[in-house]
């Protein structure tokens, strides 16, 4: 972990993941510089969550290599997990315990020494603006509060690289704005952030954006570069770039087990959690 800082915070070459016959991610190669905010812009069901899972070591690639914070994702996944912070699409909080208890649990998972835990937890609560709700079960929180708590939790162990998968999913416009302001504020800490999204406006605030469809990277560059290169107009929107590259057809995907599970919970499967 010591020694010279890696040249790239994230780099991968030929990263591929298949599920049976389906190629979810195909030969993805990219580099993200330290301190950069990198957006992966991608329609639903076109490979962004799989890419997120590959880089965060939740899935092993079928082929290809990748390094995060200079560490190989396939041969040393535990060391990668040590160095990254992860925020998932749906809150990965235990909503039957309190915000403070969630943060304390996180601190133990990341081997924070006991003497640091109270201070770090208090700091994380303050940063999430949840100090006054610290001892209430998380299930009583709004979507925005849960997101702030998760983001703050992902930063608690001081990761080098932060991975966010659709961090604004399910938030209202105010909540989205607020969350992106927070992510943008992390730039000052020199933290690298890798954010997946299908929201064009949100991707505008990234330093660089990669556009992905059907598991392949179609283009990578700053938002301004992509607008110029793809549409020829500097004042084009990222949405224009995106539609130009991915086509305009509607996407109907079959419900995944995860969708069915969420549907079941919405219908009242409370017992199940």
């Amino acid at each position: 972990m010591s020694g010279a800082a890696p040249v790239f915070a994230i780099e991968c070459a030929g990263l591929t993941r298949c599920f049976g016959d389906l190629v979810a991610v195909k030969e993805v190669s990219l580099q993200v510089a330290p301190g950069e905010q990198f957006g992966l812009l991608c329609p639903n069901g076109a490979g962004k969550t799989t890419t997120h899972h590959l880089l965060t070591t939740l899935l092993a690639p079928t082929a290809g290599t990748g390094r995060v914070a200079g560490v190989e994702i396939t041969s040393e996944p535990d060391r990668v997990r040590d160095l990254i912070g992860v925020v998932f699409q749906e809150p990965a909080l235990d909503d039957r315990i309190t915000a403070r208890e969630n943060l304390e649990l996180h601190a133990v998972l990341y081997r924070i020494r006991p003497r640091w835990i109270p201070a770090l937890v208090q700091q994380a609560l303050a940063w999430a603006e949840l100090a006054d709700r610290a001892d209430v079960p998380v299930r009583t929180f709004s979507g925005g509060m849960k997101r702030r708590l998760e983001l703050s939790r992902a930063l608690l162990h001081q990761p080098r690289v932060l991975f966010l998968d659709e961090p604004t999913a399910g938030l209202d416009p105010q909540g989205r704005r607020q969350l992106w302001d927070r992510v943008a504020g992390l730039r000052q800490r020199g933290l690298t952030a890798f954010v997946t999204t299908h929201n064009m406006q949100e991707a505008e605030s990234c330093d660089r954006v990669a556009i992905m469809d059907r598991g392949r990277l179609l283009a990578v560059g700053t938002p301004a570069e992509l607008k110029m290169r793809v549409t020829g107009h500097p004042e084009a929107t990222l949405e224009g770039v995106f539609l130009e590259l991915t086509g305009r057809g509607l996407r109907d995907e079959e419900a995944t087990p995860r969708d069915r599970l969420l549907g079941f919970a919405r219908r009242g499967g409370e017992l199940t959690r």
């Binding site: 965060t56 070591t57 939740l58 535990d78 060391r79 997990r81 040590d82 990254i84 992860v86 998932f88 749906e90 990965a92 909080l93 235990d94 996180h106 998972l109 990341y110 081997r111 939790r153 087990p257 995860r258 599970l261 969420l262 919970a265 199940t272 959690r273």
Partner: peptide, 15 residues
């Protein structure tokens, strides 16, 4: 629940 959309993902992503 935990593994698909809940807390277990936090655990799986941790070291």
């Amino acid at each position: 629940w935990d593994r698909q959309v809940g807390f277990m993902r936090e655990v799986l992503a941790s070291p």
